[in-house]
Design a protein around this nucleic acid. Sequence first.
RNA 1: GGUCACGUGGCCGAGUGGCUAGGCAGAGGUCUGCAAAACCUCGUACAGCGGUUCGACUCCGCUCGUGACCUCCA
Length: 493
Amino acid sequence: MTAVKKVPFHLTNTLTRKKEEFVPSDPPHVGLYVCGPTVYSDVHLGNVRTFTSFDVLYRWLTHIGYNVRYVRNITDVGHLLGDAADGEDRISKGARAEQLEPMEVVQKYTNGFHAVMRLFNNLDPSIEPTATGHLLEQVEMVQRILKSGFAYESNGSVYFDVPKYAEKHGYGGLSGRKIDELLANTRGTEGQDEKRSPLDFAIWKNAEPEHLMKWNSPWGVGFPGWHLECSVMSTKYLGSTFDIHGGGMDLKFPHHECEIAQSVAADGQVPVRYWMHTNMLTVNGRKMSKSEGNGFTPEELISGDHKLLDRGYSPMTVRFFMLQCHYASTLDFSNEALQAAEKGLSRLMAATDLLPNLRPAASSEVDVAALEQRCYDAMNDDLNTPVMIAELFEGVRIINSVNDGKLSLDQEGIDQLSRLFEAMVFDVLGLMREGAGAASDRVLDGLVKEFIHMRAEAKASRDFATSDRIRDRLLELGIQLNDTKEGTTWNKV
RNA sequence: GGUCACGUGGCCGAGUGGCUAGGCAGAGGUCUGCAAAACCUCGUACAGCGGUUCGACUCCGCUCGUGACCUCCA
């Protein structure tokens, strides 16, 4: 048996816009940082897509033998709502609207976020730091940036001096921006008189009296700039230069650009070796976003209680739907696509469940190793889950054919295929079996078996009217009967 | 306006300079008392117009269309 080549992994580094071989700086350790949610409202499906993509990255790196430290933050300090600096941020606004303490808002939506992550079977990160838990470190980073001369204090706030930094180190490399173009496109300059350049961004912001979340600092009462927390927490836990930093495409500029500038200004180190950006989930071709209000919450998705949903879909259907598309492509959400995914997933799972019952042949007509190799190749090629899933469906065909006695597979081949499916379907893609199967509900199983028995008797006496009535009635109740050579089986539909 | 993507068969979505993606739906077939499931076969798709090439869906240019970022967003 030829050995399957499980490495090297390649990923598209958005810093270079090229697919590169992934070589960790300190193997087998890998440092992975992903920008987490701002917890001022419910997460929607677009957020879920991003975190699911990185969940698969985390699972894959782990699967091919790396020891991954996965850091994903919780942004629990509100960002200002606009440049107008009216002293209000999203969390404060939410707190006022819901008559809650800001930290109650934070807790509420953090809990909700965790519940959603679990619902979609996303693994917990190794560390989940919060911005409020790292105030001291953020103040210290501001001080280091001030000391390096790339920031200035103005009226109780501290701003990052973008033009000065750009002159020395260059700015905009990640997102492909040029300083002149950025300046030419600057809009809305009112309320920015504290800044020397409209491109400058706050790394510490003076708090208005009505601002709810604020802390003492060397520059007065205020709160940290919103790019700062990621710079602080990523480097604190992963080192001044770490392997992979991920996030949604919409964070590329300015958020990630600013992170790079801050780290270089503060510590003289380029913080990230590989940047990975996931694309957006769209609805009718438009980005799903909180501000557009076109997002579904997971509850609405499962219940189907939303004007754009024909009916509900299970979390695993949605996860599978997402993984049938490459992370770097936009994915358009539609009922038809969801329904297709639902059926495909059910076929994949049905075949997976057949694996333990396959009867081995003396010889094998199938090259399972080749299939396995194609799965590894697909995943190592920039996490190409759609191609890997396509290979899995080749496996489904094999499993069903063997089950039908149309193809022979020896015990070794069955074992190898079982291991492959176990690894890819459950460990790597992170899919789970859903719903009550026959084995999980003894009463139901007993009742259905009794009906199957009655129907068999009716069939034996060629009373097909009765046997069909039993089958049709059960189907109406969501129980599908399947006649096979070995007898009748059932499953929920 | 600037920058950058994308436009694949009924739908969703991979991919590649010449060789089958895959899923769902549809058609025909095998099996079955009939179904369901499963398996087999099928559609010759790559926005349009030029160019490069022996050959382009894949490279280049233009046109049209859509979207993202430039402001909080995954």
